[in-house]
Design a protein around this nucleic acid. Structure first.
Length: 239
DNA sequence: CCATCGGCGCGTCAACATTG
DNA sequence: CAATGTTGACGCGCCGATGG
């Protein structure tokens, strides 16, 4: 019963409540339990179980043992419709264009004290990496300035106030360094962020599934009651 | 009070997918 | 095809609960 992270997910139909009325709703089958929509290439590798490698047979490391796992569809492709259902984006409709301009999402929750990089976009459209405790502001004159952000409360439960400190120059842009050490550092940072984001999406996804289950159970219950009522009605008529 | 346990989030690695 | 993104697996540390 850990209270930390408030992650005890009790199935709650969230704010945009999913109300079951009418019941019939055969619904555009945006089924939640989408059978792993395996792309053709992958499907073959599924059934054939990586034939090319089976000779080398997987005693390599324990890590490699998850070859069995079919690649799941990306959480990224799953969006939540206002009515609580999940929608799966088509391949091409990704379009996260503006996203990278200033992702401040996690800036506050960095408990570990490590610096997280995020993408910002300079006025000339160039992407740069900026530590997530900084924010990029475009001034009236059009030039970009970054500010450091300090949060005044350390506990995540309390509201955090943001303090803008003195501007920081962008001189330390990782200018496409060829230094392998630097490259690795950047990759690690990016992966760190990616992992965090991935976990967030996964949690969201699971929550959605649970909501969906609740809705379907509700529907099921209503249908059963309706059926029962109809049966009763029918019996009375025939007798 | 201390040891233990279970849950959680994190960072990293590696395998696989996607993109250009 | 190389670079980059995504995500499962693993190990670690932290925290709260629980039992002695």
């Amino acid at each position: 019963m850990s209270l930390r992270g408030a992650s005890s997910i009790n199935v709650v139909i969230p704010g945009d409540q999913v109300q079951v009325q009418g019941v019939i709703q055969t619904a555009q089958s945006s089924s939640v339990i989408h059978s792993p929509q395996v792309p053709p290439a992958q499907a073959s590798s599924l059934s054939e179980s990586d034939d090319s490698q089976d000779s080398s047979d997987s005693i390599d490391t324990p890590r490699k043992s998850h070859g069995i796992l079919a690649r799941r569809p990306s959480y990224k492709k799953i969006t939540i419709a206002p009515n609580g259902t999940l929608q799966f984006a088509s391949q091409s409709a990704e379009g996260v264009q503006g996203l990278q301009t200033l992702a401040m999402a996690n800036a506050g929750n960095n408990q570990s004290g490590t610096t997280i990089l995020q993408y910002a976009q300079t006025s000339d459209g160039q992407q740069i990496l900026v530590p997530s405790n900084q924010v990029v502001v475009q001034t009236a004159s059009g030039d970009m300035q970054t500010y450091q952000i300090r949060t005044t409360s350390t506990t995540s439960s309390l509201p955090q106030t943001v303090v803008m400190t003195s501007p920081v120059t962008l001189s330390c842009q990782p200018s496409k360094s060829d230094d392998p050490q630097m490259k690795r550092e950047i990759r690690l940072l990016k992966n760190r962020e990616a992992a965090r984001e991935c976990r967030r999406k996964k949690k969201e996804y699971v929550k959605c599934l649970e909501n969906r289950v609740a809705v379907l159970e509700n529907q099921n219950k209503t249908l059963i009651e309706e059926l029962k009522a109809l049966k009763d009605l029918y019996c009375h008529k025939t007798v």
